[in-house]
Design a protein around this nucleic acid. Structure first.
Lengths: 258, 258
DNA sequence: CTTGTTTGGTTGTCTATACAACCTGTTTAT
DNA sequence: ATAAACAGGTTGTATAGACAACCAAACAAG
C-alpha cells in the first residue's frame, strides 16, 4: 500500500487552495499558528510544517512578533508550466581569475540611486570586472555598490580576492536576500571585444540585487555571460516521499513588459 | 543586540564543514539522527532541522529505514559567486492560451531516444505548441514524450487543457525531478515567424527533462521564450532571522563546454 | 505632547516523547 | 533449501509544552 499523505501536507494543500481562491487575500493577515491549530485540530509543529512550505514557495511572509501575511499575486496558475522549483546552480570546473576593467567612486545616476535606495548625497562604487575560467573570458560584471558599505574594502586587491570574502572578513556587513532576473541580449561592441564573441551573439544577462541582513541594498549588478560557455542548470523537485518533501508551486514565468 | 545564531544553524555549519573537510565522505553513511543527538547533546528535532538544511542543499540523501548518505561532490567552492540559492519563479499576469502547431507519433532520433532513455522499438510523441499570454505569442514549446506513458491522453484536447493536469487525472503517472538548463539563442526563421520578433533577436532557450516518480523519463522539451516579454526571476535567501532560514550553497555557474 | 513602560499576541527555537513506515539481516518454521 | 516471521535500527510524522525574541498598540509618567 501507498503511504498516505502526511497531515502537514494535506493542510498545506488546503491552505494553498484557500489562498488561490482568495479566502486569504494578498497583503492580508494570514491566520496565526495558534488559530490554525484550532482550525485543523493538530499540533503547532504540524501547522508550522505546512506553513513553512507555503513560506518557502513565496506565498507567505512571516514577521516575528507581528504575524504572517499573504504575498500571493493573484494570477492564476498555469498548470501546464512545470511544477515550480527549487534551484541549485552547479559548480564549474575552471580556475577562476578576474581583471578589473574599471573602478571608481561616483555620484549615482537616478536609476542606480533608486535601485540601491540611496539617500541624497550617498555615493556609489562602480566596478567593471572581466572574469575568466581557465583564462578564457566568460563573464562581464558591471556592479554598483553602496559606497558607505564598501569603503572598508575599496582599496583591497579585488583581482585576487573575492569581494564577498573580503566583505565577510573585514566588515560586519552580512548579506541577505538577493533578487535575480535572467534575460537574453545581443552582444554589443563591448561584449564583442571583451568576451571575444561575434557582434550580435546571444548572451545571458543576469541582473542582481543583493541586500544586507540589515535591509539596505549592498549591490546591484548586471552580469553578462557567454551562453555558449556557461549554462544555468536548475533542478526541480516535486513532492516525493523519497526525499522528504518539496512540492513546489507551478509556473516559471513572470512578466514584466513595458 | 543581535540575535545569536540558533543551535540547529550552528550544527548545520559544523556538519557542512565536516563534509567539506571529508570527515564524512561522498557515498558514505552519515551519522544517524540519534548519533548526532548524542554528539551535539540536543534534541532530535534540532538535529533534523540542521540535517534538513544539508539535505535541501543537496549534500545529503536520506533513505527511510536505511540511513543518510553524503552526496557532496568535492569541487571547490567559488566564494565570489553568490551565496547559492533557492529559486522560486514568479507568476505572470496573463490569460494563457495555446495553439498546437504539430502533433505526431514518430520513431525517435538517436538523440531523443538517448535523452528519453527509450528501449528499442519505443515511440515518441512530438508536440510543438505556441503559447500565448493575452493572445500575444510568448513561448514555443517543442516537446518529446515517451509514447507509452503519453498514450492515454494522446487524443485529448491539448489546446484547452494542461498536459500535466490531464496526465494527473487520467493516468497513474506521477512526475518527479526535472532538470533544466537555460541558454541564450538567436531567433531563427521559425521563431521570427511564430513569436513575431526580428530575425536574430536574442531569446531564452530552456531545455528540460522531466522524470516520473518511477524514474523513467516522461518528457524532454526545448522551450523558447521571448526574453523581452518574459523574465526569469529568482530569489536567493541566505540565513536571516527574518525569514526562518535558508543559507544555500555557493555558485551560480556550471560549465559544459565539452 | 512626548517619551518610556507595560502588556498581550506572534513567530522562532528547543525539548522530550511516541509511534508509523521502512529497510536489512537474522532467525525460525516448513 | 526456501520462505516466512521477527528484531533492531533508521527516517518520517505528530504531539505537547516551554521559553525567547520581537512587535504593535495601549497605557502611564513626565
Amino acid at each position: 500500500m501507498d503511504q498516505p499523505l502526511p497531515k502537514y501536507y494535506k493542510i498545506y494543500e488546503e491552505l494553498l487552495n484557500d489562498i488561490r481562491k482568495d479566502k486569504y487575500q494578498e497583503n492580508q493577515l494570514f491566520p496565526s499558528d495558534n488559530e490554525l491549530v484550532k482550525i485543523y485540530n493538530v499540533s503547532r509543529g504540524t501547522i508550522r510544517e505546512a506553513v513553512k512550505l507555503l513560506f518557502q514557495q513565496g506565498y507567505l511572509v512571516r514577521k516575528q512578533g507581528t504575524g504572517t501575511f499573504v504575498t500571493y499575486k493573484k494570477i492564476e496558475q498555469d498548470p501546464d508550466r512545470l511544477i515550480g522549483f527549487t534551484e541549485l546552480m552547479k559548480q564549474h570546473n575552471l580556475k577562476p581569475s578576474a581583471k578589473i576593467i574599471n573602478k571608481e567612486i561616483m555620484a549615482p545616476s537616478a536609476n542606480i540611486s533608486h535601485l540601491l535606495q540611496l539617500k541624497y548625497g550617498q555615493y556609489v562604487v562602480r566596478i567593471v570586472r572581466l572574469r575568466f575560467g581557465d583564462n578564457q573570458p566568460l563573464i562581464i560584471e558591471r556592479s554598483y555598490f553602496n559606497y558607505d558599505l564598501f569603503k572598508p574594502i575599496y582599496d583591497m586587491d579585488l583581482e585576487q580576492n573575492s569581494i564577498f570574502e573580503l566583505l565577510y572578513n573585514h566588515t560586519n556587513t552580512r548579506l541577505g536576500n538577493a533578487l535575480q532576473r535572467i534575460e537574453a541580449v545581443s552582444a554589443a561592441r563591448e561584449e564583442h571585444l571583451w568576451l571575444e564573441v561575434e557582434l550580435g551573439t546571444p548572451l545571458l544577462l543576469i541582473k542582481r540585487l543583493i541586500k544586507t541582513t540589515e535591509g539596505s541594498i549592498f549591490q546591484y549588478s548586471e552580469d553578462i555571460y557567454r551562453s555558449d560557455r556557461i549554462n544555468f542548470s536548475t533542478q526541480t523537485v516535486p513532492y516525493n516521499p523519497d526525499n522528504g518533501i518539496q512540492n513546489l508551486p507551478l509556473n516559471l514565468t513572470e512578466k514584466d513588459w513595458e
